[in-house]
Design a protein around this nucleic acid. Structure first.
Length: 607
RNA sequence: GGUCCGGUAGCUCAGUCGGAUUAGAGCAACAGCCUUCUAAGCUGUGGGUCAUGGGUUCGAGCCCCAUCCGGAUCACCA
């Protein structure tokens, strides 16, 4: 950064002096020089041709000479290829840059202060009637990573979760449990609470479908067309009517229903907590829909009085968004009950009461793009200052090789199963390399397997651009070769091993490196690559896109691996070179650890 | 139909602010490399009409327009 800043400023001065024009330092285009040309940094001079009124080669030549004269300590040599000015940077500058990167524990991160903007990130947002599945895993990993990235960019971050703990779906599980459960609990069954409740939800669905089928057949015999019969049966089936009755009781605060609801939700939360812990995610503040769903009504009434919304003859309340190019949107049903949108408004209200939010980010699947477009407009109308600029961090669906990832189609991948499988596979993997793990205790081995297995899972999901649909191939995800988390972790562990051995041999890397050390092109390239980390973190923050960090870490480690095979750091005889390479290795390990850390991926000291 | 998003190697994915005669990784296939700081690695070979057609300019996988294909969404569901 230092180097390109110096050059950028010198170029700005050069343009002013040579051509009498003003350009900003930001607009100066610098890039890494292609390996086939001599140089480290390349200035693109095409943008200045209009100012110089000269051919590209001449312009580049003039600027090159100017730089040599004004910043001789930085620019050692230059050459011109068409409109590209290739600059050879003085080796000492690279050493200084490496030293700077190495000296900072969190290079590329921006500090967070009390004055930093407050960003609230909502993610996870589960329903309490089912265990978490692969889609939730993507949500949780993205949400956590994004929170880390925002913090690294100098924001105060509040991670929040809105738990959908009420509604007809929970009543279905409750009803099924009452009917077929025989008082089964997580303790008596040995099942995780969320799985237990999920099983009853499935049981409800099975019996319900059976009822619908029989009922529909009766209606057909009675002379109804098949489609109509099924539609009617879905509404008239005794089970669903009973579930609805239970929901009404819940809303009326019936003590028995509320008591059961509370008990069963507690089981689910205990189960979720285990999964969250395994995923390594957490929240600063959890909201429950049962607390917020009534709040939205108040806000809607307020908007109604201010004339933002209108009431239809049947009593339902609507927002007319046709001016914004959208449709009309229902906010309150004719019976006065709230809908999804109303609840989100209510949650927003409570959040704003609790925190002075500057920016709100919702991590929610892309099937809700329209919902958040509408929510943004509504919140803005209702006077939330962050409403207009709310960010819907919209991620794509996770698909499976044999079809869609949709809960109703029954092809879900359960989050807990997945986590367990990944860790077991990692464990198996290291067992195959048992010769390396001789001096490791079983506890350490388990911990390494956990770190590696979770790293594999997290990296596999986070390396893909969040907004794209992604394919989750279970077989491929447990392949630890290639562009994977374990590959990066492995390189990290090797570097740590080198550093340990160097220390054992009494080699200490001083804070101030010898600036006279000779650097190869590969080493310079690695330093440049390391330096890019700061830009990547910034980009991830401004684009709300953690995937570029994952890909950056892979590229960096890949480059280091090539380096690793060319040099033997510990056997290097030239002490200056050795120190520089050790420093470089250490810097790589540090940046990789910080980069993966932003993604919630841990690194093992050995593996 | 309206709106939004995607289409890059057989497969999974990168591709930064539009930059360099040759668009990159990994997987899969084939051929090499462990007496060498951890081979979960490295090197090499083969594999591409960047969906299609126009446009913008010194220069386009990237920007603009049109078309084709795929997905999402447009509920008194959440």
């Amino acid at each position: 950064m230092e180097i390109s800043n110096k050059i950028s400023q010198a170029v700005v001065a050069g343009i002013r002096e040579l051509y009498g024009q003003e350009v900003t330092a930001d607009s100066v285009q610098l890039q890494e020089t292609r390996p086939e040309f001599e140089g480290n940094v390349t200035l693109v001079v095409f943008p200045y041709l209009r100012m110089s009124k000269k051919r590209p080669e001449e312009t580049a030549q003039q600027l090159g000479e100017y730089l040599m004269q004004t910043v001789p300590d930085v620019v050692a040599k230059f050459n011109v290829v068409k409109g590209f000015l290739n600059l050879v940077i003085a080796p000492a500058q690279w050493i200084l840059l490496l030293q700077e990167i190495r000296s900072q524990e969190r290079f590329g991160f921006r500090p967070v202060t009390d004055e930093s903007p407050l960003v609230m990130i909502e993610y996870s947002s589960p329903n309490t009637n089912k265990p978490l599945h692969l889609g939730h895993v993507r949500n949780n990993l993205l949400g956590w990573a994004l929170a880390q990235v925002m913090e690294a960019n100098g924001n105060r971050v509040v991670k929040t979760n809105i738990v959908n703990d009420r509604g007809i779906h929970i009543c279905k599980s409750m009803l099924a449990w009452l009917r077929w459960g025989n008082g089964e609990t997580p303790e008596t069954s040995g099942k995780k609470g969320d799985h237990l409740i999920g099983d009853y939800y499935v049981a409800f669905d099975k019996h319900y479908r059976e009822e619908v089928k029989q009922l529909a057949a009766q209606y057909v015999l009675g002379g109804l067309p098949a489609e109509e019969a099924e539609e009617k049966a879905k509404q008239e089936a005794p089970l669903i009517k009973e579930a609805h009755a239970m929901l009404v009781k819940w809303e009326q605060g019936d003590p028995e229903v509320r008591g059961l609801w509370k008990k069963m939700n507690e089981w689910v939360y205990a189960g979720f907590d285990e999964t969250y812990k395994a995923l390594g995610v957490s929240f600063d503040k959890i909201y429950y829909e049962s607390d917020t769903y009534l709040e939205g009504k108040e806000k809607v009434e307020e908007g109604l009085q201010k004339g933002f919304f209108y009431r239809r003859p049947d009593g339902s309340v609507w927002a007319d968004l046709t001016k914004e190019g959208l449709d009309e949107k229902l906010l309150l049903r004719s019976d006065g009950t709230s809908v999804y949108m109303t609840q989100d408004i209510g949650t927003a209200k409570l959040r704003f009461q609790d925190y002075p939010i500057d920016k709100m980010i919702y991590v929610v699947g892309n099937e809700q793009n329209y919902h958040f477009q509408v929510l943004s407009i509504l919140l803005d109308k209702l006077g939330f200052k962050w409403g207009r600029d709310l960010v819907h961090f919209s991620y794509g669906m996770v698909e499976l090789p044999n079809g869609k990832m949709k809960s109703r189609e029954g092809t879900v991948v359960d989050a807990d199963d997945l986590i367990q499988t990944m860790i077991e596979d990692a464990s198996q993997m290291s067992a195959d390399k048992v010769n390396k793990l001789e001096d490791i205790t079983p506890e350490e081995a388990r911990e390494i397997a956990r770190i590696v297995g979770m790293g594999a899972l997290k990296y596999f999901i986070l390396k893909v651009d969040a907004r794209k649909n992604m394919l989750f191939n279970p077989e491929e995800s447990i392949d630890f070769n290639g562009n994977t988390g374990p590959f990066i972790q492995y390189t990290y562990a090797r570097i740590r091993s080198i550093l340990r051995k160097a220390k054992a041999q009494g080699i200490e890397v001083p804070d101030v490196l010898p600036t006279t050390a000779q650097l190869s092109d590969k080493e310079i390239s690695l330093i440049q690559h390391l330096n890019n980390f700061a830009d990547v973190v910034r980009q991830a923050g401004s684009d709300y896109n953690p995937s570029c960090i994952a890909n950056y870490c892979y590229d960096l480690v890949k480059e280091y691996n090539q380096f690793y095979h060319d040099f033997s750091v510990l056997k290097e005889e030239d002490k200056e070179k050795q120190l520089v390479r050790l420093a470089l290795s250490e810097a790589v390990s540090k940046v990789v650890r910080n980069g993966l850390g932003l993604l919630g991926i841990e690194v093992p000291e050995r593996m």
